[in-house]
Amino acid sequence: MAKLILRLSIFIVLIVTTILALILISPPRADSYLMAFKNKQKLLRETPSPRMIFVGGSGLAYGLDSEMIGSHFERYNVINTGLAYKIGMRFMLENVKTHLKPGDLVVLIPEYQLFYEYFDGSITLFAIVEIEPDVVESISFSQVFSMLDEFPQYFQRHFNFLVNSTILNKSMALSYEKVSNFNRYGDFEGHLGLKSVDITKIPLFAPDQGKEFDKDSKDYLNRFYGDIREKGADAVLIFPLISGFHYRTHKEKIDLVYDFLKDGLNMPILNTPQEFTADSRLFFNQKYHMNIEGRKYYNPLIINKLKLYLSKLDTQPATDRTELFIEN
């Protein structure tokens, strides 16, 4: 048996070395979309408080107009941390939590997938760790386990990238998805003015999504909320803008999220999913990505909800924050 273990160990080392070598010789492109994470981390570290920190996936990156929001809330410096929902909600919030200071307001605008399979994240988290290795501290053991499960896919992406960039001389990324297309607040602007596609052909939940509702998400959100309240910060939840078509076709899964959260979530929820629906022509190329008109429609909705919340907060400071829950 010792002979087998020795030989297997040598063989495993050989394979692992090959994998690591392949990963090392194909580092993330300096101008890739995900490289924006580095800049967003810098914003979290350096922007003075109080800050209004938006947390979510690419729906926020593509949809938020931080300048417009900042002009309505002059007290706050706005930061948009939205990048990709596949990073996972747990990581997004854990990462933000390490940077929070008294007076900060976290505005969580989570894609619905974040309450299903993507609560703990996916292989995209590997790429984030590769870009900013320090953030590994914000990753829990359960995430590490689910990440290990997806490691082969991550490795395959590296291999494909290497083959495409060196042998086939082909870029795998969309030409406009570059880090240089993010503005100083963290909003992505590379798509503004580009032609939109018919997003009704793309389901809100892909066939492999929306199957396993994550019942731990509420407990986690409550723990997160308790922790940041202790730090003197605050947080609210806003459901993201989706097309009316997607709302109708995936109503059951969306309502499940809302019904689950509204009963027992300590963090105030400022809208209902149905309120934040819009014409599908306001979207760019994906279910949560807004085009230029979509942004114009979306941001005032967010501003109104936040104004209402902050005015209530100013006039009637509540001991039980859920009293501020606003249901229309």
Partner: peptide, 16 residues
């Protein structure tokens, strides 16, 4: 042969 076989699985396998 073993090395190629395992690398083929890792590089071209579907891991879902």
């Amino acid at each position: 042969i073993y090395y190629v076989a395992v690398m083929v699985i890792l590089l071209f396998g579907t891991f879902e």
